[in-house]
């Protein structure tokens, strides 16, 4: 069955006709050609396919594309436009060696972005809880946790200081 849907992908509105069997990650990768979002397990365990759906992280292998009609999807492609223009979260991962093979990294960056939106000053425990839906088989996680701590600090330093303004 074919179905017309309209979505906003990384800020751009797109109308297309899709097969109802497509998952969201297949829509993103195969129909829209945005291959930064990865497919690991297709069972909702690994988190490599994490995207933002109306601003909330979801595992896009577990969402049917037909079910996101009218919604906003943000993928890793929205975070930087090239290797020389990394998003601060990506820069923190690069600087702290928060990746080895890189397969989990797009999902890790999306989950970090979401975590810092909810909690700008996460503890190490908060971070481990916040990225528990993203599996990494290379790093043993410590460097990723360091990257997220660093990303949080960079975000706080670049943001206008709310506490400073109140003093």
């Amino acid at each position: 069955m074919k179905l017309p849907i309209s979505i906003a992908i990384n800020g751009q509105t797109r109308s297309l006709e899709i097969d109802t069997r497509l998952t969201l990650v297949a829509l993103v990768r195969e129909e829209l050609g945005l291959t930064g979002t990865h497919v690991g397990c297709t069972t909702g365990n690994c988190g490599a396919c994490t995207v933002l759906l109306d601003g909330d992280t979801v595992k896009s292998c577990c969402v049917l594309a037909a079910d996101v009609d009218g919604q906003e999807i943000t993928t890793i492609e929205a975070f930087s436009t090239g290797a020389s223009t990394l998003h601060p979260i990506q820069q923190a991962f690069a600087d702290n060696q928060g990746l080895q093979c890189g397969f989990c990294t797009p999902g890790m960056v999306l989950s970090t972005h979401y975590l810092l939106g909810q909690n700008p000053s996460p503890t190490e425990a908060d971070i481990r809880h916040g990225i528990s839906g993203n599996l990494c088989r290379c790093t043993g996680y410590q460097m990723i946790v360091d990257s997220v701590l660093d990303a949080a600090q960079r975000a706080r330093e670049s943001a206008p200081s709310a506490s400073g303004a109140a003093e």
């Binding site: 759906l53 909330d56 992280t57 989950s111 528990s132």
Partner: peptide, 9 residues
């Protein structure tokens, strides 16, 4: 239940 992404959906 699950993780952040699972609880969001």
């Amino acid at each position: 239940i699950g993780d952040v992404q699972i609880r969001n959906r």
